[in-house]
Structure formats: C-alpha cells, structure tokens
Simulated scan of single mutants.
Amino acid sequence: MTQSGINGGSCGSSRTRRKQRAALGSARREEATASDVGVGEIYNVEKFVENVNAVVKVATDPADVTADKPATLRIPNRPTAAFISEQIEPIYRSTRNVKLVSFFPSLNMKIRGLQKTELDQCFCLGMFGTLELQSDIHDVADQMLERLRTITDNSGGHFIAIDLRLDMLQQKGCEGAHGTKKCFSALEVGNFLQKIGFNSETVIYVTQSRWHEDLDELKTLFPRTYTKVEHLSASRTSLLLHVTKWSGSFASVLEFRGFGTFFRESVISIEKKDEFLNLENSELEKVIDFYICTHSDVFVPAIPGLFYANVAGQRIASGRTQILVPTRNPTSGASDFLSHYISDKSHLAYSCLC
C-alpha cells in the first residue's frame, strides 16, 4: 500500500479546480465557546494552506473575501458532482460568498468504483492530506499516549482505546432495525473483551471525559481502565482515605480496595487539564480522543457513526487495522470481530492509499 493518492492526484484538474477563495475562520482559544474554536487554534493553518494550494486559494481573514453575510449551504457527506454543479455552483457564481456547513444524514465510506474519479481524489486529499495538529496540542496528545503506554508494564506497552460516550447511548443513532441496538454499554464492552480473550491486566482508555459510575462495571473487569482525568470513588463505608502519589506532572493511583475508596489516575497532565477540558463538548477534547484512538493498539467503537469511520480511515492509512466491533454474545476469537471496514476493505481509505 502506498500513499500516492493522498496528494490529491488530479483533484481539481478541470472546472472544479478553479482557484476560488475560501475564508478560514479564526478565534482565540480564550474567547472560544463550546461550539466556536478556531481552525487555527487546533490545526496548522500554514500547512493546510500549502496542502490545498493547488485546489483553492485560502484567505485567513473572512473580511478579505467580502463584508457581506454569506449564503449558508448544507453539504451532505461526499456530495456528488451533480450536487455541486446544481446546488452549490449557481449560488456561488451569483453571490461569490457562501458558507458550507457539512451534515451527515447518512454515512458512506464505501469505495465507489475501481477507478478513482476527480471528485474522489479531492475527498482523499481532504481526508488524508491537509490537516496537521498545532504543535502544543500534538505534544499534549503525545504525552497522554506515552502515559498510557508506560502503565502497561504487563502488556508490552499495548492498550485498547474504546469510544464510549455515555450521553450518546440513548440517542436515536443507537437504535438498529427490529428493535436491536447498535451501541454498547461499558459492561457489554467489558464482557465482549473478556470473552474474546483479553485478560484483566489489559489497559483501557475510554473517550468518556470524566469518570462516571456507569463505568465502574468495566473497571471491575479491567481494573486498568482510565478516562482523561482523575476521580475519587465514594466509599461504601463512612471512612474516606485520601492517598495520592505524585509522579512528574501526573497523579498516580494508590488503590485501597479494603476501604472502597481510591483515586483513579489522570491520563492528561494536571497543568493541561483545565486548558483542554474546560469547555463543554470541547473540540480540543475530541481532537485528543481522535489522536489516541488512531494510535492505540486496538480500537473498539462502542458507538457507530462518523468518529468511528474517520478513526478507521486513519488507522487503515497507518496500518493499525485492529478494530474490533463488539457483539453481545461472542463465541469465537478476536479475529472474527474485525470491523467490516477492514475485513471487506470497504473504506474509502483503501482507494485513497493504494
């Protein structure tokens, strides 16, 4: 597998290549809201502009384009050439100023055919050849990754990342056909991993931001289960014993199960916790989760959707194809539960990178 396709190839070689101007929003982190974190605060803007230069001219200040309010257009996942020519191009030509807002009424990562089209080349460029994290965010994510590897002394530095956000479990996206469910609780994921052969010493990272009591059952099966920040679990008795051992900038755990009270480790450094986790639904937090899930030895999506599909694409690109999809009653080994993106090679990434 090569990466010859990620440079965009013939992306934009004909009429779609016209170097239209795109505005790249900016927002300072200290002024950001939960839904308004500037692109430049997370990604390297200079690198982005360099990577897309052959396709689109990027203006870093929206005022450089126009002072008029742009027309907002909702763009579905992987729009067709017909959609672009019929729904986007006429409005752009008349206003010269549009705001594209992506939405995902359905998720389609399938390869469309044996030959990549010009539009597919653009999708590949957007998916794999444009974005790089800012150095400070990359450093924090790397430190968390290293922290997880250093506490896996009995498993050779290997760990599992589970995308499990408890607030998502009750949403409609978890409902399958005929009353079935496509999402899995912490206990269900724990039982799945145990039945396919993972032992209790396995280190697990969960994308849930902070510890929640619903994760306790997973912790019982796999004591080395961590979220981003430390947590104190209430004792069954009236005695509380607060013991913390410090190692560098991380809080390490001394567990006293006899008292029923223990500190759980912080995976993110204490001095970075407030900066990266102080916004509800923080985009920074999601970026960190994405980084860890794409670099873990095994990835388990307890929730279907775009995050899973994008993580799968990046893992395919890097050769980390151990993606295990849970089931409630596994009767065989881990290899039988590989993601269909891997077993069927049905992800667009295979087309982009080969």
Rank of each mutant, 00 (worst) to 15 (best):
A59P: 05
F256C: 06
V98Q: 01
G305W: 06
V189S: 00
L277Y: 11
K116L: 15
N310P: 04
L164R: 01
K181G: 02
D216F: 12
G179Q: 05
N51C: 05
L241I: 13
R320K: 15
V39S: 06
I75C: 01
L169Q: 04
L125D: 01
V189N: 00
C124V: 06
T150P: 08
C183T: 04
L324F: 11
N278F: 14
D297V: 06
V243K: 11
K286A: 07
L241C: 09
L240M: 12
R210I: 13
T207Q: 02
F198H: 05
S106F: 15
F276L: 11
V101D: 07
R15M: 12
Y341Q: 03
S235W: 10
H178N: 15
T207R: 04
V298N: 01
A23G: 11
I303Q: 04
C293I: 08
A34W: 12
G113S: 12
L133K: 03
N53M: 10
T261S: 10
A59V: 14
N53S: 15
G156N: 11
E213P: 08
K228M: 14
E201P: 05
W246F: 14
L131Y: 14
E41N: 06
S35L: 13
D214E: 13
K228C: 05
R29D: 07
A186Y: 07
E118D: 09
E230V: 13
A34M: 10
L148W: 07
S209R: 15
G113Y: 07
R78V: 02
G129D: 03
V52N: 00
Q208A: 02
I151V: 14
S296F: 07
I292Y: 04
V58W: 06
I75M: 04
L284G: 09
K195F: 08
V65L: 12
Y226V: 01
T117S: 09
Y291W: 10
K69Q: 12
A27K: 14
